[in-house]
Amino acid sequence: MPKIEIEKNVCKGCGLCVRICPKNVIVISKGLNDKSYHPAEYIGEGCIGCKSCALTCPDSAIEVYK
């Protein structure tokens, strides 16, 4: 199963990954990170490893596994 890992404390919660994800498997977390942003979060399933989120992430916070 492909998956993504989002580095919580690097993410600024801009939401571009949420917008671009074709499977809608990324959400903005209700919790805060160290920088007081609401970081993006993988819901844990449904990733197809398309790398779109990593491509759009301005902070290089996402790594993709397949």
Binding site: G49, C57, P58, D59, S60, Y65, K66
Partner: peptide
Amino acid sequence: KIFKKPKGLNDKTMHYCPGCGHGI
């Protein structure tokens, strides 16, 4: 791992606003 942070960038958090195109 099929997508990782490139070697050309260091580990500093960029000063750009959230969602800024510069980072991309």
